[in-house]
């Protein structure tokens, strides 16, 4: 019988690749800052957005893995965490 458990491998891979990509990205942006390029600041903005989106997607990996492990209550709590994180954006752009 196959046992259900929280598989951390996708989470580890996601974090590792995020780190590699953003390391290279911000190294490049710093070089552009040194070179005095005007695009460097815009690229930093998108880099920060990328880091935040990557963190959000990390929580969706939690949702998937909790569901696979049969821990549905925790997958719902993970959704709640997403909602709380997004609430600042929703409040800023759609409500306030």
């Amino acid at each position: 019988m196959k046992e259900n458990y929280f598989d951390t491998t996708p989470l580890i891979k996601w974090q590792r690749w995020s780190w590699y990509i953003f390391s290279a990205y911000f190294a490049l942006v710093t070089v552009l800052f040194v070179a005095g390029s005007g695009i460097a600041e815009t690229l930093t903005v998108w880099g920060i957005v990328g880091i935040l989106v990557s963190t959000l997607l990390k929580i969706f990996l939690f949702v998937i893995q909790f569901q696979k492990a049969g821990l549905f209550r925790f997958s719902l709590l993970s959704y709640l965490l997403v909602v709380i994180l997004l609430s600042t954006v929703i409040l800023k752009y759609w409500i306030l």
Binding site: F26, T30, F33, A40, T44, I48, L52, L85, T88, K92
Partner: peptide
């Protein structure tokens, strides 16, 4: 970070 980003409080030239 999201709150500070939305409030335009992040100095982008320092972050990278």
């Amino acid at each position: 970070s999201t709150v500070y980003f939305l409030n335009d409080s992040i100095n982008f030239s320092v972050v990278a």
